[in-house]
Amino acid sequence: MSENEKVIEHLRQAMSHLDQALTLSASTLKEDPNSKKFIGTIWEEFLGSFMGRVKTKGKESNVNLMSIFPGFKLRKFF
């Protein structure tokens, strides 16, 4: 398996886990609207941690990983 194929496989697995977390988040919010702040905080921490890891790994490897997904590409999803 090539390195590119390994990256794709890991991202597929990550997407599967994220889909499960989104489904659980949605069902939790539907059952308990008061959990909105808590669920929002969890997602905010996750996304912040992910972006922090991208920066850290980029610095460690001396590669600008942030250039993989420039801000304008991310903004179109929000």
Rank of each mutant, 00 (worst) to 15 (best):
S25V: 06
P33R: 09
L29T: 03
L11N: 14
K59R: 10
L29Q: 05
M51P: 02
F77C: 05
K30Y: 14
N62I: 04
K37W: 10
V7M: 13
E31M: 10
G71M: 07
E3T: 14
K6I: 05
T23K: 12
D32K: 08
M15T: 13
R75G: 05
K57N: 09
K6N: 07
K59S: 08
N64V: 02
G71S: 12
A26H: 13
K55G: 01
G58T: 04
D19W: 09
G71W: 02
E60F: 00
S25G: 11
Q13E: 15
I68D: 08
W43V: 08
A26T: 15
L24W: 06
L22Y: 10
D19Q: 13
V63H: 12
H10W: 15
T23H: 14
M1D: 08
S16H: 11
M66Y: 00
K73R: 07
F72L: 13
R75A: 15
T28F: 01
W43D: 04
S2I: 01
P33F: 05
G52D: 03
T56R: 11
L11P: 04
T23Q: 14
I8P: 00
L74T: 07
F77A: 10
M1Y: 14
T41A: 04
G52L: 03
M66N: 06
E31Q: 15
V63P: 01
T56Y: 04
M15E: 10
L22A: 10
L29N: 03
E9R: 12
A21Y: 04
L29Y: 05
I39C: 05
K57S: 04
L22P: 00
K59C: 00
A21N: 01
S2D: 06
N34K: 14
F50V: 06
Q13G: 11
S67L: 06
M51V: 07
P70V: 01
F77Q: 10
E3Q: 00
K76G: 07
E9I: 15
F78I: 07
S67T: 05
F77T: 10
M1H: 13
S49V: 09
K37Q: 15
I42G: 00
N62Q: 12
I39H: 02
L47C: 03
